[in-house]
Design a binder for these strands. Structure first.
Lengths: 218, 218
DNA sequence: TTTTATTTTTAGTCTTGTCTAAATATTATT
DNA sequence: AATAATATTTAGACAAGACTAAAAATAAAA
């Protein structure tokens, strides 16, 4: 088995890695609130264990092994999130920290039974897909609001940032997964948007538009 | 918060401590499969944090603080055990190791909501009482079979050893919590017992008799 | 293409928790 | 009460993970 630390690095690399590109030491350090030197140390360890490929001064990427491992951690994280919301009355902005602890519990049976208890959910409370036992999961095709144009419409299917702060903002404006959203206007000056949600018009900053994923209506 | 290691020591001392007596370094070491020297180190740490009172060469006992902490860990452990059995189809001999991991998850809300989900159970799957939020729990008065005499009878309310091995033995003989047991005879030679359970007569060794708790019938 | 700035790595240190081996206390035995 | 046996502590070492500061490599700018 892998240590909690190793698992956290694997998860982080997974999230930062796009395709087969290398992830830089600094990116990992920033994301994990740690120092680049610590990352270097760990990348060597992960490479030794054949979980990542590490090219000095260039960065790292997950191996097949590492990828499999990452997907299982993410499966656990997301299933626990569903559990917390569905069974334990957590709000969607409260689940992340606890799930971060729970995702490291080691027990195949535990996680598969949890999956069954929850009815084999396909999505977590933030709209992210949940891998099954074999690591397969739906690829969502979703677009950031910040990349849309006037007139586009769709429904909210995910959020980029799942910090409590951001989710509370959405709650305040009654925006949740499934909410129908239309782009009314785009302000060139500050890249802010005017959108329609819940029959109300709302001004959102570029930063917010950068964290909302829509599934477009064709 | 306390580290996982600290929590494990606190829990162990709690289980070994009878009344306000001191628990010896060696007892702790044996129970935890570790070395006496490691225990000494940790006892100093726990004393510094005011979780235990440590008297060199004499042993240690929990402080008020340590006791409160222990009870909360035990509350978590036992609630998770109930969850695993009731909601995730675990057998009573499968829960211990996983609960041992889960008991260290830090979230007040998590554990209280879990308690609610389970209907505020009073006992875990091995018959041990579950402390409430405030640390209060039923004191069971129970007696080890090994201390009973010919003719005594009662119902099984708990087991001392909750290892998978032992519990599987009980399963094999269809002995479970609530099973009515009568002491038919006691063999002076090897301290073994002849008991009646489920309308069947069974010979049990002293070791087994040492791990079964009965609530006596008056 | 040098020079400068940034990124990454190395070297050395620290903390937590563990271990072994040796030293010291305590308990049991004669 | 002296000696033997057992229990406990100290001293020193190690592994995992993290950090700082300095060195080396890469990227950007002049």
């Amino acid at each position: 088995m892998h240590s909690v630390s190793e698992e956290n690095y694997i998860k982080t690399i997974y999230h930062l890695q796009e395709g087969s590109a290398l992830v830089s030491t600094n990116e990992i350090a920033t994301r994990m609130n740690t120092k680049a030197s610590s990352v270097t140390d760990m990348l060597k360890k992960l490479a030794d264990k054949n979980l990542a490929e590490y090219i000095p001064y260039r960065g790292a990427r997950l191996t097949e092994n590492g990828w499999t491992c990452a997907v299982q951690i993410i499966r656990k994280h997301r299933l626990w999130e569903v559990f917390l919301v569905q069974k334990l009355n957590f709000a969607w902005d409260e689940v992340h920290d606890v799930a971060e602890q729970l995702e490291h519990i080691q027990s195949r049976k535990l996680i598969n039974e949890l999956d069954k208890l929850l009815g084999y959910p396909k999505r977590d409370p933030h709209g992210d897909p949940i891998p099954d036992q074999h690591g397969n999961f739906e690829k969502t095709h979703k677009t950031l609001v910040s990349q849309l144009n006037k007139g586009d419409r769709g429904t909210l299917v995910g959020v980029m940032d799942s910090s409590s702060q951001f989710l509370k903002y959405l709650d305040k404006h009654q925006i949740q997964l499934g909410t129908s959203i239309q782009i009314l206007d785009r302000e060139e000056f500050d890249q802010s948007f005017s959108i329609q949600a819940n029959d109300k018009t709302l001004q959102i900053s570029e930063q917010i538009a950068d964290n909302l994923y829509l599934k477009l209506q064709e």
